[in-house]
Amino acid sequence: MRPAESDTPPYVARVERLVADDGNNEMMVRVRWYYRPEDTGEGRRVFHGEKEIFLSNDYDMQSTQTIQGKCVIHTLQQYMKLKYVGVDDYFCRYEYDAGERDPQVAAGERFTPKSVTVYCKCNNPYNPDAYMVQCDTCKSCGLQT
């Protein structure tokens, strides 16, 4: 989806439904938003891939005029098998609860699943953009579950 600011990367959303807006004689789309790590309460972490996004529970109606193009959202496993990662390729391994910001809910509690495969003893999830021989933090190697 086209952002209002030209220096902002495009927004990513899944089109759920097309709707005719008879009042304005315009087609609208109901979308379900994807969030980038930096757009969440937790922010971007060392294990987040450059093309990682989170499927949210945030829905909205947008004009079809704001659609910039089509992209492909892969699972992490599909993404890691790509021979070439194009500008329109992204991956998603978490869902993000974008509900009201309750100060009693820790940022990490807004993600599903609560845990994913990790690559080291310090329990950092795998970053597909980083060629890993060993973890830079704990110096461990090998996938853990």
Results as ranks from 00 to 15, higher is better:
T145W: 11
Y90D: 03
D21R: 11
G142L: 05
G23V: 07
D7C: 08
T137Y: 10
Q104F: 09
T66K: 04
E5C: 10
Y59C: 13
H48S: 00
Q62V: 14
Q104V: 13
A4C: 04
E109W: 03
E26C: 13
A106C: 07
C92N: 12
E42F: 05
P103S: 10
Y94S: 01
P37N: 07
T145V: 13
V116Q: 01
K81S: 11
M28H: 05
D21W: 09
R30M: 14
Q77M: 04
C135T: 11
Q77H: 09
Q65F: 09
R2C: 14
A13T: 03
P113R: 04
A107F: 07
M132G: 07
E95A: 06
N123R: 07
S115F: 06
S115L: 06
R32G: 13
K121D: 15
T40W: 02
Q68K: 09
R32L: 12
Y59I: 13
V118M: 06
Y84G: 00
Y79G: 00
R44P: 00
E109D: 15
E16Y: 01
M28K: 07
G49C: 04
V46P: 00
N124I: 11
Y11C: 08
A106M: 11
Y59D: 12
K83W: 12
D88Y: 07
S115A: 13
V31Y: 02
L55E: 15
A130F: 05
A130Y: 07
R93K: 08
P10E: 10
C141E: 13
Y34E: 03
D129C: 04
C71T: 03
Y79H: 10
V133H: 08
C141S: 15
C141F: 15
D136E: 14
S140C: 11
E42A: 05
G23H: 13
V12H: 02
M27C: 13
S115E: 15
Q65R: 06
G49N: 05
L143S: 11
F111E: 05
E16N: 09
V12P: 01
S6Q: 09
E100M: 08
W33Q: 01
K121H: 08
D39G: 04
Y126P: 00
Q77Y: 05
Y79E: 01
A4Y: 03
R36T: 06
S56K: 00
K51D: 14
N124M: 11
P128L: 01
T8E: 15
N25S: 12
F47D: 03
V116S: 00
P9L: 02
D7A: 12
K70G: 06
D60M: 04
R32Q: 15
Y119I: 10
Q65W: 02
V12G: 01
G49R: 01
V87G: 08
Q104W: 03
F47L: 00
D102N: 15
C120M: 04
Q104H: 10
T66V: 13
K121Y: 09
V118H: 00
D136R: 09
P103D: 06
R44W: 07
K139H: 13
A130K: 15
K114D: 11
D21C: 15
K70A: 13
D60F: 05
N124S: 12
M80E: 14
N57C: 10
K114S: 13
E52N: 04
D58W: 08
